[in-house]
């Protein structure tokens, strides 16, 4: 049953990626684009985990963890830059 559901889940997450990409391209403001980028990270994690499930391999987990950490740091750094015009004080 899982193997039947997986393609559908792939489709939904891919659509989510496209919708985030739309927001990233359209904007209209910089925080909007940061938010879109953050959502792209989240969707990518979901996609990677789904891929790992399909392949039956736990290897992709490490990549998902790295994306989660880097995505968080990136979002914070960009927001901080907008707030202060500087990342480190």
């Amino acid at each position: 049953m899982l193997s039947m559901v997986l393609p559908l889940a792939f489709g939904m997450v891919s659509l989510a990626l496209l919708l985030s990409l739309y927001r990233l391209l359209v904007g209209p403001s910089v925080p909007d684009r940061i938010l879109a980028l953050d959502t792209l990270y989240l969707n990518t994690i979901a996609l990677l985990i789904l891929f790992g499930l399909m392949q039956g391999s736990p290897l992709y987990f490490e990549a998902a963890l790295l994306i989660a950490v880097m995505g968080f740091v990136g979002t914070i750094a960009l927001s901080k830059y907008l707030l202060r015009g500087d990342i480190m004080e």
Binding site: M12, L15, A16, A46
Partner: peptide
């Protein structure tokens, strides 16, 4: 159970991005 979890997860991910757009 796995199929339901995966579907629910994908659905909520889609709803989040839908709201964003």
């Amino acid at each position: 159970a796995l199929a339901v979890l995966v579907l629910v997860g994908a659905f909520f991910t889609l709803v989040g991005s839908w709201g964003l757009a």
